[in-house]
């Protein structure tokens, strides 16, 4: 559909007209170009550098004065020890490879930290009233613990298991040893009384995928690097022009930041 006809079509509409036109204005789509990369890119520091700084508290490697700092990369919930376990574990689940960045570079552990600090970490919109009974697997999670508590316990148990088996903290294990620990959780080889080891593994696996692919506004998917891996274009305004097309369409992705005016 050509742009003029599109505008024309919109004349008669009530709400759609209004919302669509503002939307077009906000996204810069109406002027024909996708405003992409520039703004977002300048806000993010090179991911490697920023994680190094945060992880080691290494302040000697200062960012150049003209480079904006990503203030989002600090902790709302995890202790530093928990964060380092999380960062190492998610990187094993979703490692950097020839295709592109892994969990660490994408900021997945920050994403999980920020999620746990809010409603999701407190199971705010889930039914948490008793009585509590152990149910059938078909009935789903029936525990009384909230996600925050599960992560606190689960990460401690990963540390304990690493210490016991390899006499080292999880973050200091070799990648192969880290995989051994994760496998032991995934298969319930680790026997825990408080939480289900495999249930915990499933949760961190799920949040790793969320952190890799959710809109970068949540602190993961740094630089939309997760989306680029899958050639996912983020949220474009319209696919009317390509929906019937046989050829695969590669596009520069667009994030939600582009949908708000920033002066």
């Amino acid at each position: 559909m050509a742009n003029e006809t599109e505008e024309q079509d919109l004349k008669d509409h009530r709400e759609p007209d209004h919302s669509r036109r503002n939307f077009l204005k906000n996204s810069g789509y109406a002027v024909g170009g996708l405003i992409v990369g520039g703004v977002v890119g300048s806000l993010l520091r090179s991911p490697n550098k920023s994680t190094t700084n945060n992880n080691n508290g290494n302040t000697t490697e200062k960012a150049p004065a003209n480079e904006a700092v990503n203030f989002n990369q600090a902790l709302m919930h995890f202790t530093q020890e928990q964060f380092l376990i999380m960062e190492a574990a998610t990187e094993r689940i979703f490692p950097a490879d020839d295709n592109g960045p892994g969990a660490k570079e994408l900021g997945v552990a920050y994403f999980i930290d920020h999620q746990l600090a809010g409603e999701w970490g407190l199971n705010g919109r889930e039914y948490m009233q008793g009585p509590f009974f152990k149910g059938e697997t078909t009935q789903g999670y029936q525990g009384r613990l909230k996600r925050r508590e599960i992560f606190d316990i689960g990460l401690q148990e990963m540390q304990n298991y690493s210490n016991k088996k390899f006499q080292k903290k999880f973050k200091d294990l070799t990648p192969e040893q880290q995989d051994t620990v994760l496998k032991a959780f995934e298969t319930d080889e680790v026997k825990l009384t408080t939480i289900s080891a495999s249930g915990f593994f499933k949760t961190i696996f799920g949040s790793t995928m969320e952190g890799a692919y959710a809109d970068p506004l949540y602190g993961g998917n740094g630089n939309m690097g997760g989306w680029k891996l899958k050639n996912f274009p983020g949220n474009q305004m319209s696919y009317t022009k390509i929906i019937e097309q046989d050829k695969f369409e590669k596009m520069q992705p667009v994030s939600l930041r582009e949908h708000l005016p920033h002066s």
């Binding site: 209004h18 919302s19 919109r125 039914y127 949908h259």
Partner: peptide
């Protein structure tokens, strides 16, 4: 209303955190 959806293309919030659905803490 339709204007609520400026930020709607958000998979995490709407598809995985169930933004639009019944709050299960109140009723399930």
């Amino acid at each position: 209303k339709t204007e609520d959806y400026y930020m709607v293309h958000d998979e995490l919030r709407y598809a995985l955190r169930y933004e639009m659905f019944q709050d299960l803490s109140r009723e399930t």
